[in-house]
Amino acid sequence: MLYSEKVMDHFLHPRNVGKMENPDAVGEVGNAKCGDIMRMYLKVDNGVITDVKFITFGCGSAIATSSIATEMIKGKKIDEALELSNQAVVEALGGLPSHKIHCSVLAEEAVKAAVKDYYERNNISYNKAKYCSNDCPCVHEFDNKPQN
């Protein structure tokens, strides 16, 4: 099979899927032209992420990485969510095919974009250099490379 059991589980039974009413932050990354877009919604209370939702246009692994990323940041402090790496997403899913690594990068970037939106809405300063431009080449350069 193309995907691990864990990926299929998150694809077939995505956690925290759906839109959110009145979110405290929203991040959207990807490009429909490339075939993947992720949108992540956050509810934040006292600097802690109390709820996360996502909607994703994309392949099986795009949906699975979004799903597991929401689980991985729920209950975390907003600053801690920024620490979520694409490698951690890949590991949590029990691996991804090499040409699908970009989906894990998108999941990391979707979380970052949502956190960035939170910072901006609340006038909190942040390091802009940490965010990728979300264009296709930027994300796809992670594909087919050996992962540490």
Binding site: P14, V17, G18, K19, E28, A32, I37, M38, R39, I55, T56, F57, I63
Partner: peptide, 8 residues
Amino acid sequence: REISPVWD
């Protein structure tokens, strides 16, 4: 479509 930001 329900879970697609593009459709939204």
